[in-house]
Amino acid sequence: MTAAAQTLPNSQPAPANDGLEKSRSPLVEALLRLRKNKTAMVGLAIISLFLVMALFAPWLAPHDPIEQSLYSKLKPPVWDAKGTWDHILGTDDFGRDLLSRIIYGARISMVVGVVSVSISLFFGTIAGALAGFYGGKIDNVIMRFMDLLLAFPSILLAIVIVAFLGPSLRNAMIAIGVVSIPRYARLVRGSVLEEYAKDYVQAARALGARDSRLIFLHILPNCLAPLIVQTTLGFASAILEAAALSFLGLGAQPPTPEWGAMLANGRALILRAWWAVTFPGLMILFSVLGFNLLGDGLRDALDPRLRE
């Protein structure tokens, strides 16, 4: 190898398109594509709605979410003949206002998403980067362990973990975070292997860059796109799984206004109060759908390999 490449003039061949489009950075390109993507935009709108609910819950909610009232038990929604404007979506068997509980529930679900995804993102990225970068024995040990975690249906693994840590919302978030680590680890490892082989990494290496610098400054930013997609979809599954654990009594405990826990309570009321079951479930469905829509759209917009 010689240093011949350095003496070449730094000329970029002009893009071969008809000169109308200026070359934009990949990020701007991706954002432009994202804005045109209807799926992603609908998803983003839904998510924004839930974020507003989560951030402004104390101002939006008409009642205290855990305040009980013996006088207004099992009130139907406002459009029912027996409904009142005081409780727009009705009340549960403790007389708690359903609308308020649902609004506060958004808070919990968003926190669950952030915490669990952070756990899996953090450990998954480190594990995957180490495995991909160092290869050999380290790779083998890490990835065999990840395969092992994948040998369990994820909800089962989460249930077992929570069962032995003790049922609580905190432990549910940990369990869900742990269960999804392999997805991120596999993804990052794959991208690192792919990027590692490329010239710019080898060049940085030749210039004496330290391993950690190489991984965090050079390689990881280049596998950001699939990671962003996975993170978005990860929010969806974290919310869904947390609700499932709470529904089974292994996550949030009463009287926390968590959607899954509300469903567990509403389950006993299906013969008397359909609304106590219907609305919390719709919230779960729509929040999960929002993240899935955004994730799908992001995949189309960010991953040029998948574009037509």
Partner: peptide, 10 residues
């Protein structure tokens, strides 16, 4: 995106 434990109840 379906929470199946809810769908079952519905």
């Amino acid at each position: 995106s379906m929470p199946i434990f809810w769908l079952g109840l519905v």
